[in-house]
Design a protein around this nucleic acid. Sequence first.
DNA 1: TATGAATGAGGGTTCATTCAT
DNA 2: AATGAATGAACCCTCATTCAT
Lengths: 200, 200, 200, 200
Amino acid sequence: MSPRPDVRAQRIPQILDAALRVFGRSGFAQARMEDIAQEAGVSKAALYLYFASKDDVIAALLRVYFARGLEELAALRESDEPVRVSLMGWSRRRSAELRAEAAYLSIGYEFFAVAARQEAVRQFLRDVYRRYRAELAALLDKGARQGEFPALRAEETATSMIALFEGLAMMWMLDPAAVDLDRTAEHTLSVLLNDPGVSR
Amino acid sequence: MSPRPDVRAQRIPQILDAALRVFGRSGFAQARMEDIAQEAGVSKAALYLYFASKDDVIAALLRVYFARGLEELAALRESDEPVRVSLMGWSRRRSAELRAEAAYLSIGYEFFAVAARQEAVRQFLRDVYRRYRAELAALLDKGARQGEFPALRAEETATSMIALFEGLAMMWMLDPAAVDLDRTAEHTLSVLLNDPGVSR
Amino acid sequence: MSPRPDVRAQRIPQILDAALRVFGRSGFAQARMEDIAQEAGVSKAALYLYFASKDDVIAALLRVYFARGLEELAALRESDEPVRVSLMGWSRRRSAELRAEAAYLSIGYEFFAVAARQEAVRQFLRDVYRRYRAELAALLDKGARQGEFPALRAEETATSMIALFEGLAMMWMLDPAAVDLDRTAEHTLSVLLNDPGVSR
Amino acid sequence: MSPRPDVRAQRIPQILDAALRVFGRSGFAQARMEDIAQEAGVSKAALYLYFASKDDVIAALLRVYFARGLEELAALRESDEPVRVSLMGWSRRRSAELRAEAAYLSIGYEFFAVAARQEAVRQFLRDVYRRYRAELAALLDKGARQGEFPALRAEETATSMIALFEGLAMMWMLDPAAVDLDRTAEHTLSVLLNDPGVSR
DNA sequence: TATGAATGAGGGTTCATTCAT
DNA sequence: AATGAATGAACCCTCATTCAT
């Protein structure tokens, strides 16, 4: 009804998108507010209408950056297909996503670096990965209950799986020619699911 | 004109050590040459007698930071003990090291972030991890030849193992209370080694 | 196109009042147009409907700030009471006013500072104080003619009296506990009026 | 003994002198650190070697600005000449000083403005003027004891004298043509000293 | 070999002012 | 008559780097 559309709701993602591209290109420290403004097509001062500081932009980006992927995992619990199939599909989609968004990978590592130094950021990521692990563990439990694979320590296996994905992403980023993301991920996933010794 | 070799040999590690501590605390960007000088107990100008620039300090640190662990792995190939035992010991020592040097973890992530943006750094780390994988694959081959575990795709398994370790380190950094580094690492290692499906 | 006169007549004092409070709190330089707008309960842009610039607000305030007191002094010339009594009453009222408006004192000093640097402002204040002195001198003349006190150099004594009041205000602002405004003012006034040597 | 003369002791007054000139010309707010640096013949960054911030420069200037004149007053107490003569000479020298340093007058008013807003600055100036009053009161006591003039309320008269001087300075700044600094000051001084009513 | 002093270049942030509605 | 949104122009301050000694 208001003659002016809510411009805030429009600007904030617009700026965060620009920040994503600029930070991906230059890193947090090298990126200038000027660069982000230009990339977003607004004036530098306009950034400060929506974010209190450069750190505030980074903090907002943190929340956006790690939000993706969790809903999808949650949805898999409702699916009718076998858990093993779900996981394979999920793995494949994550790989595709990784390739598509390779340009922003460095941002993730910067966030990990900050997390290692700052409790607040660490806590945020801790929570993100806790939800992640819990979701994955629930899915594994479902698969075990359905008899798809031997019972396993779901929490620990979930941790291993996530660690594996994060680690593989690293290895692939460094050496895409030598690391076959899909094949290695799926193969290792398969091994982790079949382990007979775990039930011991 | 340039410092006498013996003084150089003393100052350079002294400065790199200081840089390690300061970067660990503050990150590459926030750390000031002044801070490093102070931590090293020399004047700011003295840094420039041994390093051409801040980037040069960081580059030198890169070479030091990722050098550790490789010789140890190489040594294991000569060992008489079973490969499985070697690997478990190696895993345990890596965990201990991680805990001991947690304060410098953020530096590693900063290097990954830089690697994702700069080909030169990426290439350096690529080579490091290639040597790493090759060494580990050789060890796995040895174990398979000795009949300790079924034949496996050594390269791929090596990649998985390293990815797993790097990923677990991340998870532990974020959530040390929830991630039992030793147990998860050893358990996953064990699973990866025993996989019967792999031999197919 | 321009605001209707009645709205103008309402808004302008509303804004100047707000400016008075904000400038008193923060000083000309620190005060932001935003602050004044908020204090006045209007939007920042609205200020610019009534004032061309921040300097314009300050200029308008200058005219208001130093307008007070002169009419009162003029009125005393018409009074029937002895001049000495008039002056004492006037002194007392000025002291009361000072105490009541202590919060705005800093504005006056800022204006003096600007006057010392800018001829235009200096000229304005010069005129204000000339009228002030003339009025006071006329009153002193009246008192002398009525035989209340010995003839005196009226202009010079008026200057001294005003200087004394301004200076006392300063001393009191700095040290209200140590400077008894009323007592010192009245006492000095009395001395200045009685001086027998002046008639020489 | 040090090959380099203590450059700090040289730079600080050099910068404060420059600041005095620039602030006198432009006021605290309009003056840019760049201007001060240029006036002092150093780089902007050099200012920050000696002063932590612009406010710090201003604070240092405050201490210098109001330090003058007190020692001279103290010295008069030791003098053999009659107090009345001392005071007249002092008055004349203060007037001369005022004329010589008229360019910096606005700084004083800015300090008064700040004092009116900030307790810390107010306290500093309070102390300055307390010492000032005390010194002057002691001198007046001496004169009264020597029988030069009737006994008077020394503290109060000192306050009046200082107020008078400060106020006259203001009036003169605004209207040098109309205010005869020396004559008015000396005349009023004389009146204040002779007052017979005060002893009552 | 070492350093205290100095600086150029730059970047984050602020704010008076304007404009579209 | 009024305002939310936007911006250009500054300005303070920082810091990697250099220099004179």
